[in-house]
Design a protein around this nucleic acid. Sequence first.
RNA 1: GCGCCCGUAGCUCAGUGGAUAGAGUGACGGACUUCGAAUCCGGAGGUCGUAGGUUCAAAUCCUACCGGGCGCACCA
Length: 556
Amino acid sequence: MSAWSRMEEARQAIAAVIEEFLARQGYEELVPLVQVEVPTEPGHGDLATSFALKVAGRMRRSPHELLQELESEWSKVPAVASYEIAGPGFLNFTLDTPWMALVIDQISNNPAEYGNTNVGHGQRVLLEYVSANPTGPMVVVSGRAAAVGDTLARVMQASGYRVTREFYVNDAGNQIATLGHALALRLLELDGEDVESTWPDNVYPGDYVKGLAAVYRDEHPGLEASRLGESDWPDLGVWAAERIRQSHEQVLKRFGVVFDSWFSERKLRESGGPQAIIDRLAERGCVLEQDGATWFQSTRFGDDKDRVMIKSDGTFTYFVPDAAYHAGKFDRGFDYVIDLLGPDHHGYVSRMRAVVQALGYPPDRLEIMIVQLVRLMRGQELVRMSKRGGNFVPLEDLIAEAGVDPTRFFFLERAPQTPMDFDLNLAVLRGSENPVYYVQYAGARIHSILRQWRESGLDPVPLDLGLLTLAEERELIMLLARFPDVLMRVAKERAPQHLPRYLMSLAAAFHAFYRVGRILDAQPSLRQARLALIEAVLAVNTRGLQLMGIEQPQEM
RNA sequence: GCGCCCGUAGCUCAGUGGAUAGAGUGACGGACUUCGAAUCCGGAGGUCGUAGGUUCAAAUCCUACCGGGCGCACCA
């Protein structure tokens, strides 16, 4: 039995009593139905279970009858202060406050690791996110993926997974030649030629290539732009892509997002990865020649149509190196492969799954999450962003305008697969409308109180956590005890939004407590207990923000 | 046409088959002689897109439909 928090310990103690009861009655197979949960409604206690409703039918007993037979057991569970049978057969527990208050000791013993669990069991996870094409500045939706991926990585790591964070760089193929084409044109422009009036349709028109052209010219003093031809585009493109990739790395770093690994498509191609994957698929009889092209029979694995791998002109489709890349992830020994993809890639999911399945890897170990679109708003007005038109809002500008902390908080607050509106007018507000400051303000207030305590010169007295009896203190204790559950849930469900929401409720509970409970001018023993309480709140708040990549300022 | 995501308070969004569906924000009414009012307290605000089905119990699962977004290439 491994309990990582007071709340979990209480939950397990209660569940154990019920499970033993079921076993005694000869219904061991019903044990999995026993769930003890934190109820949504405050009036329903600290923990509740509806197991009686679930098993009554199978046992041919009434829920109330079962609950009454268990009544004598609850006095033996130290975590339980009282219980209540409610409604059609719910069992609601009120937990013992002093018993739960020991969570404060637990936190102060190891504040930096409180909340850690081992639900990941040391499994190796490859988390791929952002993977923005190195053909232009990083856009806002990539920022969302960056925030989500980074926080998932941090929380999963805290939950016992071994996480590798990887950025896949599409630095090969047609788009790189196209980028090289754009660079060649901008170099001509530097020589005074008019390229705008004859700009080709598919070539990236964005201004950012102009800056790259200037750098390129500085590095190549003897360059004659007029002699550059189509055969030079790929090399120019590779050069430009690497520059842009570096700029991505810089922006991400400023955003607090750092990768363990940057995986180059070009190197994958150079090492023969694409052909190797086709050979492996062919060995398994999943490859077909037709109409002068080579196809992968992905329909045999649930895709809606077969996919071309080698075009009739002899080149690979984009899909092939990507397939090789994904197979490689499993070959590298990862237990779970998680992709955060942009919404423009979701037509892509089924063929990727097909490849994994065709090669005999466990298909459920590939998890693909679609991070949905971000609509930038200024109040009611939609801010347009389209890469094609060269008119878009780079992540860099968003961070500069709104700040890293609010931006990350906004991105993390919503479920990743939900399309979201990001209101710039709201994000730049430094006031109460902006939730990130609400959370940080709670921490800053605690810092301030602790500062004054240190400066007061008053002596500490022995700690008695049993003095924390106010409803507001109790609420804080229960929330602190739930923190490990929150992190565990974020990790297991890959659902970062639970963390900011938890921190909002922790901050709210603290602010409410602050209104009714004096700290520094309370009686010495009560003061000591309350100081321990708010120190624990600060520790959890700081840790939670840190997992979101957000600072906890000491003053605001 | 096919696939995926989303329809929940005026707005932005949570919600794990359970009890009276929540939070923030906006609007309204209150609270600073007191450790930070970037705060707190209060009421108001809902046919959970619609209609069926499964279940003791559905916002949640299933089916059909309606609305919005995105994707459906021998592009990347």
